[in-house]
């Protein structure tokens, strides 16, 4: 295996992007940030890979317009996944492993506010017996949360403490949409919205984009003194039928975590768009109590579709660059109620 590291990361997210669903307006400055961080130019990047969805943009081949942000004359080597960009990064990492390329920029973007996000996401369900009912994301998460509550796997206070910690930690994250010092009591004082969920239990609808630079070996050291070296990178998927798997545990996260290796992790950025999902992820990964979880505030404070998972990798890498973590774990999820999960572990050397 080639040693590959994360050496650049930039993000932008907001409640409502005043711009087009191609997100060009924010992708251009994000890429400019990355060139500044690495000291590289477009010609230093061997491979480009993005994650986005036409269902969010409401137009076909929307990712093709976003390619304008790169500048593609002379032509570049490029690919795309209709998943969170964390999976685009997996593709780029595999591409580097083949030896064909040494560097890659991975980006994700989406303007969730253009439509009704929780409704549009019903289109990722089984098209025969589930999607025709238009089960929205929040309702499915509510069913999942109640099952855990009533089975005694977690309680309201545990969910509220995830919310309170996330919003308090996000106070120092300039890109968080929902932030500020918050106590468990503050959370529990909020009315129920999608009983058993409060609005704060659900990630805010977020627009945004993010990008990461990964590079192999010496190239990585050229761009950054203390790169975040990838030590494990795995993803797993569970059945689409909601009654074919347990919703209150995440066997795919557990399998990806075991394969990637979680020993020695001191920090974890978990992509949990609902408070109780963080509890599921923590227990599926078997994280020790002293592991710092989501110091950035996590997806509960900003969840831009198709980049929120990549943001977890970027935030974890940043902690390593800064020396705040020696080994960090980043997790991304995609699909309904934690159907697909990815784990990426990184370390500083």
């Amino acid at each position: 295996m080639r040693d590959v590291a994360v050496v650049g990361f930039a993000q932008r997210q907001m409640k409502e992007l005043d711009g087009s669903p191609t997100c060009l307006e924010i992708l251009v400055p994000i890429l400019a940030d990355l060139y500044e961080q690495t000291g590289w130019t477009k010609s230093d990047i061997d491979f480009w890979c993005s994650g986005s969805s036409d269902y969010l943009a409401g137009r076909s081949f929307s990712f093709v317009s976003a390619v304008d942000a790169i500048g593609t004359l002379p032509p570049v080597m490029e690919s795309h996944v209709e998943m969170d960009a964390a999976w685009a990064m997996y593709e780029a990492w595999v591409k580097i492993q083949t030896g064909e390329v040494d560097t890659a920029v991975v980006y994700g973007f989406g303007k969730s506010s253009a439509g009704i996000l929780r409704r549009i996401l019903a289109l990722q369900l089984d098209p025969y017996t589930a999607q025709p009912l238009w089960p929205d994301t929040v309702s499915l998460a509510g069913i999942q949360a109640r099952e855990g509550l009533e089975k005694g796997l977690w309680d309201e206070a545990a969910m509220a403490s995830v919310v309170a910690r996330s919003m308090s930690d996000a106070a120092s994250n300039e890109w968080a949409i929902r932030r500020g010092a918050t106590s468990v009591e503050d959370v529990l004082a909020q009315p129920l919205y999608a009983d058993p969920l409060r609005r704060w239990d659900c990630a805010p609808v977020s627009d945004g984009a993010a990008a990461i630079v990964i590079a192999a070996g010496d190239k990585a050291l050229q761009a950054r003194q203390r790169p975040a070296w990838i030590t494990g990178f795995e993803h797993r998927i569970e059945p689409i039928a909601l009654n074919a798997r347990s919703l209150v545990e995440s066997s795919s996260t557990a399998a990806a975590g075991t394969a990637a290796g979680t020993a020695g992790v001191d920090l974890a950025e978990l992509h949990a768009p609902f408070s109780h999902q963080e509890l599921i992820l923590r227990s599926s990964l078997g994280l020790a109590d002293d592991v710092r979880v989501n110091p950035s505030g996590g997806a509960l404070t900003a969840n831009p579709m198709f980049s929120a998972g990549l943001n977890r990798i970027g935030e974890a890498a940043r902690a390593i660059w800064a020396g705040d973590s020696d080994k960090a774990l980043a997790h991304a999820t995609s699909g309904p109620v934690l159907q697909q999960n990815l784990v990426c572990t990184m370390e500083g050397r």
Partner: peptide, 23 residues
């Protein structure tokens, strides 16, 4: 077996007024 309240139904769902999705 489990349920969630749909306070604000969206278009094309089975009911137009608030209802529950359930397993």
């Amino acid at each position: 077996q489990s349920w969630s309240w749909v306070a604000e139904p969206v278009a094309q769902q089975p009911l137009e007024k608030p209802f529950a999705f359930a397993q």
